[in-house]
Structure formats: C-alpha cells, structure tokens
C-alpha cells in the first residue's frame, strides 16, 4: 500500500501542500483532480520520493519512499510525466526499452515486453520510427508504453504502482479513453494506478476513487458519485457546473454552465434548465436506437 500521512510541504513561506493524507491500494484507479496550482504535481513528486515533505511521510508498504533504493523502487513504480523532452533520434522501440533500465532481465525478454507494451499502448506500428518525428500524442503514447514496460511483470519485491501525470494532455478523444482503459487493465493486474486528470468526466468514468485538491488541501475524496457534486466542484474550481448522469455509463457527468447563468444547482431540475432563457442546452446526446424504437418514435412524433 502506498500512503501519504499528514504531508505538508512549503517552499520558503509559500505552502504548497497542507496536511495531506491519502492511501492507494493495489488494484484501484485513483484520480486526482484540482485547479491549476492546487498541488497535484507536488503531491505526485512527494509520492515518487523526488521531493521530501517538511512534515509527514510518504511510505510504500510502511517504508519511507525516500529511503527505498531507487533501483528497487523503479522496479515497482513507474511514472508517466506530463511531457518529456527528448531531442535525440532514438527509435520508439529504444525509448520503450529504456523502461527496462531498472531490470536485470535478458535483452530478448526486454524486447518481448517492450513490443507487448507498445501494442497495448497502440504504438507498435511506430516501433522503428524515430521518436523525434512523431506527433505530440504519439510521443506521449510511446512514453506510456515505456512506463508499462517498466512495471510489466509482477515484482517479487511487492505490489506495483503506476503514476500518470496528466496522461491525456496531448491526446485526442479516443486516445484519452484508450489510455484510461489501459490504466484499468493494469489495475486489474494488481497495480495501483494514480492519475492526475484535468477532465472531470474522464475521472468520473474511469476512476474507482476521485481525490479533489484545492490550494494544497485535500477537500474531498470518494467514489465518483460521492465527489462529483456541484458544491465540491464549485469549491475546487470556482465554476458553476451541472451534474447529470452519463447516458451510457453508470457515472456522473459534469457539464460547465455558461458564465451568465447564475443558477442554484439544487433548485433547478435538469429539465427546466433549458427553459431559463440564457441557458442553452449544453450538450447533445445521441442515444443509439433500434429500428423498432425508431418506428415507435416516428409514430409518436407524427401523431
């Protein structure tokens, strides 16, 4: 288990994190959401052992993260950065193979794992292409393959963890969901996944738990249904939202309201929202219909 206990961190007088406690179990997908500067990345760095908190501790299976041998830690925990700068013409495969750095496996084993990881990330067709000629989204997925290769097989040293710092930042819609579906697959294999996400709907659709941060504090934590409420989101992001149900998935759906529509979330039912003059329908939903249903609908609308 990965645990943050009463973490506080400040640079000079500026507090970045205040009294944060969080646990991540193997097998679950935890999303961290929060406004820019809320401390998400700082918290991630502390979890990685890259920063040492002034008070509190980050521990892995009860052992302080900063005291674990970096090589050993790297075999159990992979980190996908927000963006990486690599200006040397490695092939994509070579970049993915870097994920095997902490392992003492044979080159052919490493290669096999690298190819599998590339396939999982949907970049196997780019294997021999030079990394620097790839698009931003492709590069990001190559790095995803790299971190997957890093923790591909179970470690005898303990459970594995995967940290994703805004993994979907440069990805198109289908790849955003693809990445989080991979995260789910990885979690099913017993890996604890922690992802910093900006898109609340991605978080609510794919995470088991959502952690909300605001100004260095953890303001809410729970299942998507518990956390994705207008009040919590308004408090964290200073924005008026409406929370409905996702039409196809069993999770809440968050929709931002136009700035001028100052409405009380609780008193306005969704149906009447469109009747307030300034509030346009914020989203159009296409529900797949069967031919029989279509006939029925036609009948109703015509009569």
């Amino acid at each position: 288990m990965l645990e943050l206990a009463n973490i506080s961190y400040h640079i000079g007088d500026k507090p970045l994190l205040k009294d944060i406690s969080l646990k991540i179990q193997p097998g679950e997908v935890v999303a961290i959401v929060g406004a820019n500067g809320a401390g998400k990345t700082t918290m991630m760095k502390i979890l990685c052992g890259a920063l040492k908190p002034q008070t509190g501790s980050a521990s892995l299976d009860g052992k302080n993260v900063s005291q674990i041998d970096p090589d050993r830690l790297a075999r159990r925990r992979a980190v996908l950065p927000q963006h990486s700068t690599l200006s040397f013409a490695f092939s994509s495969l070579e970049v993915v193979m870097m994920g095997r750095t902490p392992h003492r496996t044979t080159a052919s084993e490493d290669l096999e794992i690298a190819f599998q990881a590339m396939e999982a990330a949907g970049v196997d067709h780019l294997a021999s292409q030079s990394y620097i000629t790839l698009s931003g989204g492709e590069q990001q997925r190559v790095h995803l393959a790299r971190v997957l290769a890093q923790i591909w097989s179970p470690s005898e040293e303990g459970d594995r963890y995967l940290f994703l710092d805004e993994p979907t930042a440069s990805l198109d819609l289908s790849h955003q969901h693809h990445v989080l579906r991979i995260a789910r697959q990885v979690a099913k294999g017993g890996v604890g996944v922690l992802a910093v996400l900006h898109d609340l709907n991605l978080a609510s659709q794919h995470a088991d738990r959502i952690v909300v941060m605001r100004k260095g504090r953890l303001t809410a934590e729970g299942t998507p249904d518990e956390v994705m409420t207008p009040d919590i989101i308004n408090d964290a992001f200073d924005i008026n939202v409406m929370v409905t149900r996702h039409p196809a998935a069993a999770c809440p759906l968050v929709v931002a309201l136009p700035e001028e529509a100052m409405i009380d979330h609780d008193s306005i039912p969704i149906a009447s929202a469109s009747s307030t003059s300034q509030l346009r329908s914020p989203i159009s939903i296409k529900i797949p219909v069967t031919p029989e249903e279509e006939a029925v609908i036609k009948e109703i609308t015509e009569s």
Binding site: P26, L93, A107, S108, L111, E112, F115, Q116, E119, A120, A127, L148, W152, S153, P154, D159, R160, Q185, V186, K188, G189, G190, V191
Partner: peptide, 30 residues
C-alpha cells in the same frame, strides 16, 4: 497479483493475435 501479465496479454490477444509476428520483430531488432 500474478494475474497481471495474464490480464495484460489477454487484453492484447483480444485486440489482435500477432505473437509470431512479434518474434520476427524481436529477431529483426536483434
């Protein structure tokens, strides 16, 4: 925990079955 490799590779297989192809590519890189 040991199921991870199984679950990941079953995920792969559902996508496409290219194990032999992969061995060719490993040989190529080598």
């Amino acid at each position: 925990m040991a199921s991870s490799i199984a679950s990941l590779s079953s995920y792969l297989r559902s996508k496409s079955s290219v194990r032999e192809d992969q061995q060719d590519r490993v040989a190529e890189v080598t």
